[in-house]
Amino acid sequence: MAQAYSIESAIHEQLARVGTCSLDELVDLLPGYSWNQVFDAVDRLTREGTLSFQHPGPFLYLLSLAPLQSVEAGA
């Protein structure tokens, strides 16, 4: 599980630095990991809601950190 935490932290760090990027750009920013490892981690992070995944056009997928959700007291 240490490997999963490491890649997830690296993804968060890179997206905090660059803002929005494509999956292929993110893979290029993480040369220590394979495309499959990055894709698997991105899948996990988008499912848990910490990454935002957009599909603005054909063959274009953009990733960014999801906005923080505030929890209202008493809600």
Rank of each mutant, 00 (worst) to 15 (best):
M1I: 05
M1E: 01
A2E: 10
A2T: 04
Q3A: 09
Q3D: 06
Q3M: 06
A4M: 07
A4Y: 04
A4I: 05
Y5K: 04
Y5H: 09
Y5W: 08
S6L: 15
S6V: 13
E8H: 08
S9T: 06
S9C: 01
S9F: 08
A10T: 09
A10Y: 05
A10D: 09
A10G: 02
I11Y: 07
I11S: 10
H12C: 00
E13L: 06
Q14T: 11
Q14I: 06
L15E: 08
A16C: 04
R17K: 12
R17S: 02
V18C: 04
V18T: 05
G19F: 07
G19I: 07
T20N: 12
C21T: 07
C21V: 00
S22G: 14
S22P: 10
L23E: 12
D24I: 09
E25L: 14
E25T: 13
L26A: 06
D28H: 13
D28Q: 15
L29M: 12
L29E: 09
L29I: 05
L30K: 04
P31E: 11
P31S: 00
G32F: 07
G32A: 04
S34W: 00
S34L: 08
W35C: 05
N36P: 12
N36V: 11
N36K: 13
Q37S: 14
Q37N: 13
Q37H: 13
V38S: 07
V38N: 06
A41K: 02
A41R: 04
A41Q: 03
V42K: 03
D43H: 14
D43N: 15
R44N: 13
L45N: 06
T46Q: 07
T46F: 02
T46Y: 00
R47H: 01
R47S: 08
E48T: 15
E48G: 13
E48C: 15
G49I: 01
G49H: 07
T50M: 09
T50W: 08
T50L: 09
L51T: 02
S52Q: 10
S52A: 15
F53N: 05
Q54L: 13
Q54G: 14
H55K: 12
P56K: 14
G57N: 11
P58I: 09
P58M: 01
P58L: 04
F59M: 04
F59L: 05
L60A: 01
L60N: 00
L60C: 03
L62A: 01
L62N: 00
A66P: 07
A66R: 06
A66F: 13
P67W: 06
L68T: 03
L68I: 08
V71Y: 04
V71R: 03
V71Q: 02
V71W: 03
E72N: 15
E72M: 14
A73Y: 12
A73H: 11
A73I: 15
A73K: 10
A75H: 01
A75M: 08
A75N: 10
